[in-house]
């Protein structure tokens, strides 16, 4: 049952992304993407990561995509005729190269029987929190510095002269 659900979600995810990257307007692509990210969040939940699933919805679907929408609106990029769409000439190298990469990866990742899988286990939030603050405490500091400087950089570039 869960396995079937996983495959259905995977299909939704991939189709959503396909639609998103071929959409004619950026806004539509954002909407498709939000859909796929919801599916992705459910897959995370199925894979035993409820916390990441929640963050996926909150941060990705909620914050980052809205930021994109906001910028699109602000720059008034919406009128479709103003923007060049990728034509076949642009898609061909993309298809070729992405195809080559995915082919190679699939060969590498699926060609061998994996070592005995211990089976998917759910990881409790407590364990997650312990790992976060006991093992990787410094990572939080580094990322916080990075977020701070994202702010600094954005403010610097946005400064009116």
């Amino acid at each position: 049952m869960e396995a079937t659900l996983f495959y259905i979600l995977a299909a939704v995810l991939l189709i959503g992304i396909l639609l998103a990257i071929t959409a004619r307007q950026a806004v539509r692509s954002i909407v498709y993407l939000v859909t796929s990210f919801f599916a992705l969040a459910l897959m995370f939940y199925l894979l035993g990561a409820p916390l990441i699933a929640a963050f996926e919805v909150i941060i990705y679907a909620g914050a980052i995509m809205v930021l994109f929408l906001f910028v699109i609106m602000m720059l008034e990029l919406e009128s479709p005729e103003k923007l060049a769409k990728p034509n076949f000439k642009n898609w061909l190298p993309a298809l070729l190269l992405a195809g080559a990469v995915v082919g190679a990866l699939v060969v590498l990742l699926a060609s061998r029987v994996q070592a005995v899988p211990p089976g998917f286990t759910e990881i409790p939030v407590r364990q997650f929190a312990f790992a976060l603050f006991k093992q990787y405490g410094v990572a939080v500091e580094v990322v916080s510095m990075q977020l701070l400087f994202a702010l600094v950089g954005a403010l610097y570039l946005g400064r009116r002269r």
């Binding site: 990787y136 580094v142 990075q146 400087f149």
Partner: peptide, 17 residues
């Protein structure tokens, strides 16, 4: 690897700015 990756990306990040 987590810290390693974050450090590497922070370096690049600083240089983007």
């Amino acid at each position: 690897m987590l810290i390693l990756f974050l450090a590497l990306e922070s370096v690049s990040f600083a240089f983007y700015i």
